[in-house]
Write a protein that binds this DNA or RNA. Structure first.
Lengths: 129, 129
DNA sequence: TTGCAACTACGAATACTTTCGTATATATTT
DNA sequence: AAATATATACGAAAGTATTCGTAGTTGCAA
């Protein structure tokens, strides 16, 4: 299995997941186009090289500017991180986490409907399990 | 504000939240009574000393074995960690996180009912907002 | 009262993550 | 062709987290 991405690596994966295969320059630009925090080009380069070694990204070296692609799926990675997190912070209870995540009233009405629909589906599934 | 606890610190806070004020020895024993992973006594001591400096725990020094108490609330701490996590791993979308958290079908029927009830309450609240 | 057990304090080793400087190569512009 | 811009590679500094050894203190038991 791949090692879990660190926080910086996750930021880079997020860019690649959203925008598809990119060069280091493109990733670095996108990371920096947000808020004041400016990350050096070689910092991003180094991180992406390490990620390639770990298997988190793959790269196409055929042109001078190497093109990097996420090599791990978004959902699977999130699932892994979620597992670690729910264990570390919520004693392993996903339900506790869900209740806390919804409890601050930030979800929109449409979000709530979507969640309700998922729950209905889960309950129907359980009925036949 | 208090700095967010690290993963190790969170493990210690978890013990204190569950079991109330404890000595270093007691915390260390509880940490080690789980699986094979054995943590040295002075390691736990050092961590708890650092946590005291940070304000994550308070301690009663009146007896030779100092007694430590969690100085930050469980819910508030979880809320802070959840915020960081949802930003880092789910692009800030709590709804995405909730859908993923429920999506693995691990929640029990009772859990789902509880979540549905919270959603109903939120929807009623919104109606008047 | 001597010696052993348990405690705190603290420095420092280890490990992991992030950051960047510098060397070097390749393309592009003038 | 020379100067300039842009790439990669890589070592290493800096920052943070974790771990533990050792010294010194205090309580307790033989």
């Amino acid at each position: 299995m791949h090692p879990a991405p660190t926080e910086s690596e996750l930021r880079i994966l997020g860019v690649l997941w959203d925008a598809g295969p990119l060069t280091v320059r493109e990733v670095n630009d996108r990371l920096n186009e947000d808020r004041g925090k400016s990350i050096g080009y070689t910092t991003t380069l180094k991180l992406m090289q390490l990620m390639a070694e770990k298997g988190l990204v793959s790269r196409d070296v055929s042109s001078r500017s190497h093109v990097y692609t996420a090599a791990v799926p978004r959902k699977g990675t999130q699932e892994g991180l979620l597992n670690r997190f729910v264990n570390a912070a919520f004693g392993g209870s996903r339900t506790e986490l869900v209740l806390r995540a919804l409890g601050n009233g930030e979800a929109s009405a449409a979000d709530l409907v979507e969640i309700k629909q998922l729950i209905e589906k889960l309950e129907n599934g359980n009925r036949h399990a």
